[in-house]
Each structure stands twice: as structure tokens, then as C-alpha cells.
Design a protein around this nucleic acid. Structure first.
Lengths: 144, 144
DNA sequence: ATATAAATGATAATATTTTTCATTTACAAC
DNA sequence: GTTGTAAATGAAAAATATTATCATTTATAT
């Protein structure tokens, strides 16, 4: 079940953020869209409602909403700027959010889930992205 | 097992790409690094070897290597520019690579895997990213 | 109504990626 | 080894995306 505009607004307030017309409009735009939207797309839509809004406000609002986990950030393929050498065979990654260390792990099979999704949605599934983010041992100590 | 520089070079040739010193250097850099590297980081390293190389060549080489699946593209968190409203409860996404349609799905639990990884690596896992990419039914038809 | 900290928008700066095009080069054919 | 050719490169600029700065405005508690 998707979060409602009301619920999002309330959570913002609870965390001490002010509820401005601009923020309301950003929330309404995202909440009423079926698709995922880029900051620029959100700006365009919100701009109809709030002609004086700046793109900066969009970015700031998205940052807050993402931090509070009221919106989801998607990785829609394409350009996410980090590369490692390919490993033979299928594998996934575990990445340290602090130092960037990457550990490959294998032996986890998503085929069944993939088939289930394909059957349920009619999608022809081309691939997937599975990553874990966390703190490696070194970085845990530094944070203490 | 990670791909070797040799293997990557051979695959490039097999696909009709020329093996230039610049490309060799990019491959060597990525292959010899433990971390994942941004294009800018790769450029810096390669530049020591090939002082005249341009950043453009890095981008072009990365595109080719990624297309041939010789390197992995990582999403290291941060700014990947697409947002949807948060759903209540934990869920993941299925995204159409053509039209961008997003389907949320729930009921898939990664806790066990998370615990296994945590035990094996000592990571303190903060979160994960699981997405499937594919073609929705509409877009499959258009592509025929 | 008022005080105040937070939020906004304008502007500029920075960072990232792509395009264009003249020059150079890898490599296949001889 | 030469040579021809398509492919690749680098320089420069353009396009795109994101962040920083700061004076002004505003939501909200009192």
C-alpha cells in the first residue's frame, strides 16, 4: 500500500520540517504519479502548480523525503558511474558505504523469483540488480 | 573468479573492436583494482600511463566494456535520479527498460541472505537494492 | 501580532556526460 | 614491410545534472 500525501505531510511535521506549499506540491506530484520521476520531471510538473519554484527546492525536498524513507530512490539503469571488473559467473555485490570496498558474492539464485514475477506481470525480464550496502569491519570501528 | 586482462582483450577483438593502448590501459586499471572506480578515478589512474588520453575515451571504453559485460556497473548509492512514492512495508521494484513503468512487488525476504553475508564478511549491513529490469507487456509488442 | 529559525529562489559554481570533427592509428590485405 | 580504410582518439564545446551561497521570504510557535 502506497503512502498517502497526508501521511507524508504528517511525518515531515513530526520530524520538525515545515510544510510549505512547495513541499506539498512536490509530494502531491510524486504521490499521484504511477511512474518514477526524475528531479527534472518533478520540477516540470510542480512548476505548473508553483510557477516560481526553483529546481533547487526540488532537490532539497527530495533529499529530505528520501532520508525519511517517504520516497524510494530507483536506479533505472544507465549511468551510475562506478565499475569493477566482471567476474566470471553470476554474482552480486556487497558495498561498504563508507570506504567503498566491494565484495562479490555468488551462490544466490534469483531465478525462481524472476520466474514468479514474469508469470505475474507478463514482463520479459532481462536482468536484475542486487546489492547490499553496509559498513565493512574497518569502517565500523572508525565510527565508534 | 575475476576476468583477466587477457580474456577481456580477446573478447574485445572477437567483437571487432580494436585493441588500442588506451583501451588496454583502461582494462588494466580496472582489472588491477580491488575497488570499484568512477570514470573520473579511472581517468586519473590511466592518465599516469597514457598522459594524452582524454576523459571521453574513458567513457567510450567503459560503454563498450559494459555492453559486452566485461565490467560491472555498480550503483553505489547516492544520486540516481528517479523517485517514486514510498510504499508501506518493504518491497522491491520491477522496471520496464523501455517505458519506465515501475511495478512494486513485496513478499520477498532477503533477511536470511543478509545474515549469511553479515556472518561471512563482518559487514554491518544497512540496506539493499533489489530491482528487476525487463520489458513490460506493451513494450514487448512494440519491439516485434 | 510577532519573533525566529527554517525555507525559498536567484545566481553562480561545479561536476558529469555527450557531441562534433579533424587527426591519428590498428589492423587486414596485399 | 606498405598501404588503404574504417575505427578510434583528443580537443573543444555543448549539454546536462547537481550543489553552494546568500539575501529575502515564510511557516509556525508563542
Amino acid at each position: 500500500m502506497r503512502l498517502t500525501e497526508r501521511k507524508i505531510a504528517a511525518t515531515l511535521r513530526q520530524h520538525g520540517y515545515k510544510l510549505t506549499p512547495q513541499r506539498r506540491s512536490v509530494i502531491r506530484t510524486i504521490a499521484s504519479s504511477q511512474d518514477h520521476l526524475t528531479p527534472a520531471a518533478i520540477y516540470q510538473k510542480v512548476h505548473q502548480d508553483q510557477p516560481s519554484i526553483g529546481l533547487v527546492t526540488i532537490y532539497r525536498t527530495l533529499d529530505i523525503l528520501a532520508k525519511l524513507e517517504l520516497i524510494c530512490e530507483l536506479h533505472a539503469g544507465g549511468s551510475c558511474h562506478s565499475y569493477t571488473i566482471g567476474a566470471r559467473g553470476h554474482h552480486h555485490h556487497l558495498i561498504c558505504s563508507n570506504c567503498g570496498e566491494v565484495i562479490d558474492f555468488a551462490g544466490y539464485d534469483l531465478t525462481q523469483l524472476e520466474q514468479r514475477l514474469s508469470r505475474q506481470t507478463g514482463f520479459e525480464i532481462e536482468g536484475h540488480l542486487l546489492e547490499f550496502i553496509g559498513l565493512c569491519q574497518n569502517c565500523q570501528q572508525e565510527d565508534d
